[in-house]
């Protein structure tokens, strides 16, 4: 499989990363270099092999469904680029 300029543009859009037009071609080349190298995984027989999850089998820990945190509005907002009246300010979402 090989990616072209068009694919890079699409993937960059999916990843929400602005990639300048003149960088699409070089980026496609770089990605192809990496993807071609990754292709060697096709040599491995993975018939009847389960995907790895964890090296140490353990049950997912359970906890009581209770509130353990909260009432820290100002801390939550402290690093926001823009706030107003205790809210995050974001670009207009609905026209």
């Amino acid at each position: 499989m090989s990616v072209d300029k068009k694919t890079v543009r699409k993937v960059a859009r999916l990843a929400r990363i602005a990639v300048p037009e003149e960088k699409l071609e070089p980026m496609a080349e770089e990605l192809n270099g990496i993807l071609n190298w990754i292709e060697q995984l096709n040599e491995v027989d993975i018939e009847d092999v389960e995907a790895m999850t964890t090296p140490v089998k353990m049950a997912m820990p359970m906890r009581d469904d209770v509130v353990t945190d909260g009432d820290i509005r100002d801390k939550v907002l402290a690093n926001a680029p823009k706030t107003e009246d205790g809210f995050f300010v974001v670009p207009k979402v609905v026209e």
């Binding site: 990605l31 995984l41 491995v44 389960e50 995907a51």
Partner: peptide
């Protein structure tokens, strides 16, 4: 970081999950 995010987005994009991520996780088991 951008390079890796693009690779990651590509291998997880529709139709490629089994060919890349799932296969890699199975190779991990091996």
């Amino acid at each position: 970081v951008q390079r890796r995010l693009l690779i990651g987005t590509y291998v997880l994009s529709a139709g490629y999950y089994d060919a890349y991520y799932l296969r890699a996780q199975k190779v991990r088991t091996k």
